[in-house]
């Protein structure tokens, strides 16, 4: 792979023209699926992802229930037509299973689970089109779907990844950067205190690189949080506006 490695940074700009700490454009729309208790759709660069929340409802099978709190079941999958490459296999593979697990763990921390003993809350994340960073975008949009479902939470988490290209730390890797970068570090953050809810890393970085990555993620968080909040408020403000 080394031999074919494309040049990812030319004259201080990335392949898609972004600066090092620049996010791709993000758009979120809440409440777009009728059957779900809460739902949201995100376009994050070329990623297109749907999230839907069902519950709290009786935990099934019964032996999975926790008599003291709700259990969180996340399911992340990618559509077979979601990439620019060949037709994918549908259904969860090992990668998707791992992403589902770490996504559940993010929301286990954030949802006030003790209010709903014996129940489950299902979070479905469906990647319709992928272009790198789908797990982070998935967590960001699932957050909105959960709030739209009226589920009580301590915070509205967001996620984004940082990475390393050569010696340069960059924010929000797209697909081609992700394929050839020297490190990828997806993080999910609780914006009220900056605590890290999800952290994964592969590649090679220094301790300083990690600090830089966290600062980049935190700074981008202000933008992402605002987009999340606006998406949640928009449907209501639209109706208020109509009758003002």
């Amino acid at each position: 792979m080394e031999g074919n490695k494309p040049q990812l940074i030319i004259d201080g700009k990335r392949t898609d023209g972004r600066g090092f700490d620049e996010l791709r454009p993000i758009k979120i729309e809440a409440n777009i699926l009728k059957n779900a208790n809460g739902s949201a759709y995100i376009e994050w660069g070329n990623n297109k992802i749907l999230a839907a929340v069902y519950g709290p409802k009786e935990a099934l099978p019964k032996h999975t229930a926790d008599p003291t709190m709700a259990i969180i079941k996340s399911r992340y999958t990618m559509a077979p037509f979601s990439s620019l490459e060949e037709h994918g296999r549908s259904g969860p593979n090992r990668r998707a299973t791992e992403i589902s697990k770490v996504t559940s763990e993010v929301f286990e921390n954030i949802i006030m689970r003790e209010m709903f003993p014996g129940t489950e809350i299902d979070i479905f994340i469906e990647v319709l089109q992928s272009d790198g960073g789908t797990r982070a975008a998935g967590i960001t949009v699932a957050s909105v779907a959960l709030a739209a479902a009226g589920i009580p939470m301590y915070d509205l988490p967001y996620a984004v990844s940082a990475g390393k290209i050569g010696d340069q730390m960059v924010l929000d890797l797209n697909k081609i950067e992700d394929n050839y970068s020297d490190a990828d570090i997806p993080m999910a953050i609780s914006p009220r205190n900056g605590d890290i809810l999800l952290l994964q890393m592969d590649g090679s970085i220094t301790k300083e690189d990690f600090s830089t990555a966290y600062s980049m993620v935190k700074k981008a968080g202000a933008t992402i949080s605002k987009i999340q909040k606006d998406a949640l408020k928009a449907p209501y403000e639209k109706i208020i506006e109509k009758y003002r």
Binding site: G38, A148, M153, D155
Partner: peptide, 20 residues
Amino acid sequence: YSTVLGIYEAEHSSIIPLEG
């Protein structure tokens, strides 16, 4: 901190959830 999506009425110091 708020725990829900809702309307905060500062005057009555109360929150009316919009969903849930």
